[in-house]
């Protein structure tokens, strides 16, 4: 099985952390994985995105043209990536910030009020982990336990204070979708 995910949002929404955690967890589970960031002309407050592939077999290019799954943390991300999802793929929309609905009818739309859920847990900045939890449930790309355990490996030292909040947010996201 191969899962190709694009995660996108404002700079500061934790898109790169989401991608790194997914990729790291895949590595821990002995899977093949690549992480590829958009790089270059990005800036704080602008858009950031990264592509992660998790696979049971060797991965050719880490560049994802046609993702199985997109996480749109803001409206710009929805606009940019909706058209690229493979038919039958899934888009996770952060409905706390994005009111617009997905236009395509050949993909599944999962709306998650990620900021609101994270706010309820203690801080809206854990919205990224709520979203990632949803993705893990839906795609089965990696086990949620493995992601929870990997968190302390990928969080920066200064974010360690938020370790427990992030763990809770991942679990909560995992339980959010069926």
């Amino acid at each position: 099985m191969t899962t190709r995910v694009i995660m996108a949002g404002f700079g500061g929404q934790g898109v790169v952390l989401m991608g790194t955690l997914l990729s790291y967890s895949a590595m821990v589970q002995g899977k093949h994985t690549t992480f590829f960031p958009s790089y270059g002309a990005e800036m704080r407050g602008g858009t950031a995105n990264c592509s992660v592939i998790v696979s049971d077999t060797e991965i050719p290019s880490p560049v994802v043209n046609e993702p199985d799954c997109v996480i749109a943390m803001n409206i710009a991300s929805l606009d940019k990536f909706e058209s690229r999802i493979r038919p039958g793929g899934v888009i996770f929309v952060n409905s706390s910030l994005v009111k617009k609905k997905v236009a395509r009818d050949d993909i599944e739309e999962i709306r998650v009020p990620a900021n609101d859920i994270a706010e309820g847990l203690g801080a809206s900045r854990a919205a990224n982990m709520v979203m990632l939890g949803c993705v893990l449930k839906k795609t089965g790309a990696v086990a949620v336990d493995s992601a929870v355990k990997s968190l302390e490996k990928v969080l920066s030292e200064r974010a360690m204070a938020l370790l427990e909040l992030n763990k809770k947010a991942l679990q909560r996201g995992f339980e959010e979708v069926s």
């Binding site: 790194t20 990729s23 590595m27 093949h32 994985t33 690549t34 992480f35 590829f36 960031p37 790089y39 290019s61 880490p62 560049v63």
Partner: peptide, 10 residues
């Protein structure tokens, strides 16, 4: 190339 430099892999 830029991909090899920028990507992460185990």
């Amino acid at each position: 190339d830029g991909i090899l430099g920028q990507m992460m892999e185990p």
